[in-house]
Amino acid sequence: MPAYLDTLNAKFPKAFTTSTFRDNHRVVLSGENSYAVLFPLLKCLKTECGFDMLGEIGGIDYLNYPGATDRYGVVYGLTNTTTGERLFVKAFTNDPEPELPSVYEMWKSADWMEREVYDMYGVKFVGHPDLRRILMPHEFAAFPLRKDYPLRGYGERHNFQTVTRADS
């Protein structure tokens, strides 16, 4: 068992499950306790277990996924730059108000990645200092990577005025 699991088990008993696939090790939180546990758990991983780099935050929409119980998953990819060890922490959140705590305080890299998850899935990160759309236009109202949003959109891409030769 990796050393970080002992620390986590001692501090957060029964708050998470673990799983392994190929060389990916995961710590999975449940939909109910994600909001409460996520921040202290990541803080513990950073300060006590040496996972000093947050390399990635990715959102997933588990609508109609086989065996899924919660709708939005957010994956935090942590790296220990000294040992090269990797760990993925998975948190879940649900409609109607998908919310997770922001980890911006600990890792500056969370700034844009959390904004991107918000932009694409509408998951609000509570405590993020500047949570607004990053990739889509400000006026855009949908969250395009949600599974119930069609690939080709609702036709927003055509709604611009046309400039003809006479205008110029």
Binding site: D52, M53, G55, E56, W107, K108
Partner: peptide, 8 residues
């Protein structure tokens, strides 16, 4: 900072 901001 490079580690904290996730640079590679």
């Amino acid at each position: 900072e490079a580690i904290n901001t996730g640079c590679t």
